[in-house]
Amino acid sequence: MINIAWESFTPYSALFGGAVIGIATTMFLLINGRIAGISGILGGLFRPMPGDILWRVAFILGLIVAPTVWLAIAPMPATQIDASYGTLVLAGILVGVGTRFGSGCTSGHGVCGLSRLSIRSLIATLSFMASGFMMVFVVKHAFGG
């Protein structure tokens, strides 16, 4: 039934990278008192409240600077983006609208929500995974691409 791509499966780096993500959400939760939900942090900029902008921009800058800091230690792993520019525009709009209506993305619902055993986040995670599986099936297999 399920065919595992053993040559691209990287369980150890995945688990370790995941743990580092867990440490980041722990830092943000215990030091800043907030949920590290990236769509919410970015989207909140467009519904601004006083004193609510700087920390959001700072978090986003941290993400953007990460490859530069990483490069000081090791080379960047390869990035392969198969989607065309047009597809990425559609993908971006769907991700933007969808995460805001759904109040979260892979980080907010998938990591933080599941960490606190939220049923709401479990439903959200199952929903975006299901439609993600479906979309890749349609794009890669149904159209023979």
Binding site: A83, G98, T106, S107, S127, S131, M135
Partner: peptide
């Protein structure tokens, strides 16, 4: 929640990017 997450997943699958 469900509709938004479904839309997000579609975009995620199309581009391979989440935020």
């Amino acid at each position: 929640l469900v509709g938004g997450s479904l839309l997000f997943g579609m975009g995620w699958g199309l581009g391979g990017f989440c935020p």
